[in-house]
Write a protein that binds this DNA or RNA. Structure first.
Length: 300
DNA sequence: TTCATTTGACCTCG
DNA sequence: CGAGGTCAAATGAA
């Protein structure tokens, strides 16, 4: 960790201010856009997605700048788990700030996290596995990944991948934490899925409250779903009763089945709140596609 | 030799 | 106190 010279500090501070002001402006634009939604074909320069990318980029840059400034201030030490490599670090940049003891870290909050269910682990980014853990009541172990460029570019993105269904309908539940600030991606990957940032119509809900929330808000919803763990079967109005062996699969089915009705309401509602305090986020189209394949595809 | 993965230890949090 | 998240030494692959 290097000490920044005064002139460098001033430049960083100026840049930090610019980034924060830009982030605020873009957020205001995004707010206007959400209050006055445009047509579905709108892809102008001020699209919600574009603004979201700019805002996230602005905050990422701001945090990096703030980190550089704090490196030179003993009063503002950032926890090691949030450290970003400064430009003048040498060999020591291969590792974060010296850890006093093994496992000395701050457990992350669930802020800025979202989940996707996909048939593959691949998402177009370079990840490095740093751990694997058997999770209670889960059929498969959970794998932990961090961005390959954590140390060379200070990218703090991480993800957890948990297999939730075996072949032939193999599925992985991937939870992402933080956004990539690195520039390197696997451009040639056939599985370059634009997971970052979250796509439109992202749903957010507490897993345990899926059924009550949806049915409270949509009493006419034709879907009846139970989400309790260890339930041996769940109801599906489309295909009758489906046997479900594991709790994880039960949860997944519940998620899938609530997507369709909620999706329509999200699209039609202009007052939908997008929360960043997420337990489970899903890209609806993917989930609905999967549901269609599984509920309808095999019966035909 | 370098880099990625595996795996047990260690730590935080609820 | 137990479950889950991260670290880092050992090991394997390229």
């Amino acid at each position: 960790m290097g000490i920044l010279r005064p002139e460098k500090l001033c430049a960083n501070r100026k840049r930090l201010m610019e980034e924060l002001v830009m982030g605020r402006d873009k957020a205001a634009q995004l707010q206007n856009l959400l209050e006055k939604p445009t047509g579905p074909g709108d892809s102008g320069p001020a699209s919600a997605e574009g603004l979201l990318v700019k805002i996230l980029g602005s905050f990422s840059t701001s945090l990096s700048l703030l980190k550089c400034a704090c490196d030179s201030c003993e009063l503002c030490q950032i926890p090691a788990s949030f450290q970003v490599v400064s430009e003048d670090s040498g060999e020591n940049s291969k590792r974060p700030a010296a850890k006093e003891r093994r496992g000395c870290y701050k457990r992350r909050k669930t802020l800025d996290a979202w989940t996707k269910i996909l048939p593959t682990m691949e998402d177009g980014h370079a990840w490095r596995k740093y751990g694997q853990k058997q999770i209670l009541n889960a059929k498969f172990s959970r794998c932990y990944f961090r961005c390959t460029h954590k140390y060379d570019q200070g990218c703090l993105a991480t993800k957890q991948v948990q297999k939730i269904q075996e072949e032939p309908h193999q599925m992985y539940q991937t939870t992402y934490f933080g956004h990539h600030t690195c520039t390197n991606t696997l451009k040639n990957s056939q599985h370059t899925l634009d997971y970052d940032p979250p796509q439109p119509y992202l749903l957010s809900f507490q897993l345990n409250n899926i059924t009550s929330d949806v049915q409270d808000q949509h009493p006419s919803c034709p879907i009846s779903v139970k989400t309790e763990c260890n339930k041996e079967e769940i109801e599906c109005n489309f295909s009758g009763k489906l046997p479900v062996a594991a709790a994880a699969e039960s949860n997944m089915w519940a998620d899938m089945l609530t997507m369709r009705s909620a999706h329509e309401d999200v699209i039609s509602s202009t007052t939908t709140t997008i929360s960043h305090d997420l337990e489970m986020d899903f890209l609806i189209d993917e989930c609905v596609d999967f549901q269609n394949d599984f509920c309808f595809g095999e019966g035909k």
